[in-house]
Amino acid sequence: MGLQHIEGVWEVEKLCFTTPWSKESFEKEVTDNNFAFYLVVLDPQKEDKVVAYVGSWLILDECHITNVAVHPEYKRLGIACGLLKILQDTVKLRGILRITLEVRKSNDPAKDLYKKLGFYEEGIRKGYYSDNNEDAIIMWLNLS
């Protein structure tokens, strides 16, 4: 992801999350955060419209996924699965051994996708989500 993708990523973010990150947050990720690693999926049929993205932080030998989102018009096409597989392969080449993320306890479709990709549940963060105080399930994937 580069600065040219910020507007599109932010549009997807707003459509997918009840408490979206600000556009400025994404700009800072690209310009100021040396740990940030983002991938975007573009639709070449629509002037390279951003249709999905994954954000992560690469710290030592771990990857912490911060965001995964697919534009509602592009859901159920396997984009999230493919994007996460590309993330896994790419970060593994950079020496990453494990990937972690938090997911809403109620988000069964996302949990099912992560489990399909080999993630396992490892804990709970009580009241993690500020919009409704929902718990987050901590999930991990070992790449080694």
Rank of each mutant, 00 (worst) to 15 (best):
V41R: 00
L42D: 09
D43T: 04
P44R: 10
P44A: 09
P44M: 07
Q45C: 11
E47D: 15
E47L: 11
E47A: 11
E47Y: 10
E47I: 08
D48F: 13
D48A: 06
K49Y: 13
K49F: 14
K49E: 15
V50E: 03
V50T: 02
V50Q: 00
V51T: 03
V51K: 00
V51I: 15
V51G: 01
A52N: 03
A52T: 05
A52I: 03
A52Y: 03
A52S: 09
A52G: 04
A52P: 04
Y53H: 03
Y53K: 00
Y53E: 11
Y53T: 04
Y53W: 10
V54M: 02
V54C: 05
V54L: 04
G55F: 05
G55N: 05
S56F: 06
S56A: 15
W57P: 07
W57H: 07
I59K: 01
L60R: 02
L60H: 14
L60M: 11
D61V: 11
D61Q: 10
E62N: 12
E62Q: 11
E62R: 01
E62V: 08
C63F: 10
C63S: 12
H64Q: 14
H64F: 12
H64N: 12
I65A: 04
N67G: 08
V68L: 03
V68Y: 01
V68P: 02
V68K: 01
V68M: 00
V68F: 05
A69L: 04
A69V: 08
A69Q: 03
A69P: 04
H71D: 14
H71E: 06
P72W: 06
E73A: 09
E73I: 07
Y74R: 00
Y74H: 02
Y74A: 03
K75H: 09
K75C: 10
R76F: 10
R76P: 05
R76E: 15
R76G: 12
R76M: 08
R76H: 12
L77C: 08
L77F: 06
G78Y: 06
G78L: 05
I79H: 01
A80G: 14
A80E: 09
A80I: 05
A80D: 05
C81I: 09
C81L: 12
G82F: 11
G82M: 06
G82C: 07
L83C: 02
L84T: 05
L84Y: 11
L84S: 01
L84M: 14
K85L: 14
K85R: 12
K85W: 07
I86L: 12
I86G: 01
I86Q: 12
L87I: 05
L87H: 01
Q88E: 15
D89M: 09
D89N: 13
D89R: 07
D89V: 04
D89W: 12
T90G: 04
T90W: 09
V91L: 02
V91T: 02
V91H: 00
V91W: 05
K92M: 11
K92F: 10
L93Y: 13
L93S: 15
L93R: 11
L93G: 09
R94Y: 13
R94L: 14
G95N: 11
G95T: 09
G95D: 11
I96S: 02
L97E: 15
L97H: 13
L97S: 15
R98S: 14
R98W: 11
R98Q: 15
L101R: 01
L101W: 04
L101K: 01
E102H: 02
V103P: 03
V103Y: 09
R104G: 07
R104F: 13
R104W: 14
K105M: 13
K105A: 13
